[in-house]
Simulated assay, not measured.
Amino acid sequence: MPIVEVHILSGYDAEAKRRLGEALTDAVRFVVPAPPEAVTVMIHEMPGEHYYRGRTQRSGAPALADPKEIVRSYLLAMERRDIDTAQEMLGDGFVMQFPGTAPMSKLSELIEWAAPRYRSVTKTYEGFDAMQSSSDAAIVYARGTLSGVWPDGTDFEGIRFIDRFELIGGLITQQDVWNDIAEVRAST
């Protein structure tokens, strides 16, 4: 039974500590073959007045926002065509790559490119998976199925998709999309 102990400065809320406990459990399970209930995580809080670095008293940094929730909010804003809200979630140098087209950097380019492909599309999510890359980027995968309406007014559903996002500093900097929409459309 793996036991992980971590010391943090006091001030993090229960949600941040829950996320930290889950992330440490997942990190252990990535190496040690243990079910989640066999991994014990102990979080010890230290008062900030007892923490010094470089002879200076320091306080803890605020918890990062959950990258899965940022991606979920972005995708919901895009589905609602709330472009202003979605745009606020994008970082400098944002680039997105969809099947069958060159990389795009503006949401307006995506909307223009998608217009002849379908009238509307919605996503049903099977899950979101997040991890930290070896760089500063958080990686989030969203997976599930697409449904919607083709340009001729016929409905479609059950088309597989995977979206991969990179986030730096809580902002989306890259989106890569894979789906079977072209193959399904060609067969109808």
Rank of each mutant, 00 (worst) to 15 (best):
E183L: 15
M96Q: 15
G91R: 01
A186L: 08
G48C: 07
T154E: 14
R160P: 01
L64E: 13
D136S: 15
G144Q: 01
E45H: 03
T173M: 02
F161C: 02
S59F: 11
G48H: 07
D163C: 00
K17L: 14
P36V: 08
P67N: 07
F128C: 07
E22H: 04
Q97M: 15
V184W: 05
G11P: 05
S135M: 12
F128G: 08
G169P: 11
T101V: 10
F98D: 00
A186N: 15
L167F: 07
A65M: 14
V4D: 04
G21A: 13
R72K: 15
E5I: 11
D84R: 10
R143Y: 14
E5R: 12
A63P: 03
P47N: 13
I172F: 03
D155H: 11
F94P: 04
L75R: 06
I111F: 01
H7N: 13
I168L: 13
R185L: 03
A16V: 06
W150Y: 13
A142C: 11
A115N: 00
M78E: 10
L9I: 15
A16G: 04
Y74V: 09
D152E: 05
R19A: 09
S147Y: 00
Q132K: 12
D82Q: 08
L90A: 09
Q97N: 15
A27L: 04
F161S: 01
P67K: 10
A16M: 06
G93F: 02
D152L: 03
R19G: 02
Y12V: 06
H50S: 12
R18M: 05
E22N: 07
F128A: 06
T56W: 06
G48R: 11
Q57H: 09
D82G: 10
L24C: 01
G170F: 12
K68E: 13
L171I: 07
M89L: 14
V4E: 04
E37V: 09
L76A: 14
R58D: 03
I181V: 14
R119Y: 02
P103D: 04
Q87P: 01
E166Q: 14
T85D: 11
G21Q: 06
A186Q: 14
Y125T: 08
R53T: 12
D176I: 15
I139C: 06
T124P: 00
G60E: 14
T85K: 08
E109V: 00
P99H: 15
I70A: 05
F165Q: 02
Y52Q: 09
G127S: 03
I139L: 14
V95N: 07
K68I: 05
V95Q: 15
L171Q: 13
G91L: 08
A130E: 10
G158I: 00
S73H: 12
S135R: 15
E109M: 00
G144E: 01
T154P: 02
R185A: 11
R164P: 13
I70R: 04
A86P: 11
V121T: 00
G91V: 10
V71M: 03
R29N: 07
G100Q: 11
G91Y: 05
T56N: 13
V184Y: 07
M46I: 14
Q87T: 10
P2N: 06
P67Y: 11
S133H: 08
H44E: 09
D176Q: 14
A142P: 09
D92G: 09
L76C: 11
S105M: 07
M78W: 12
L167A: 10
R18A: 12
S10P: 08
A23Y: 03
Y118D: 03
T40S: 10
R119W: 00
M1P: 15
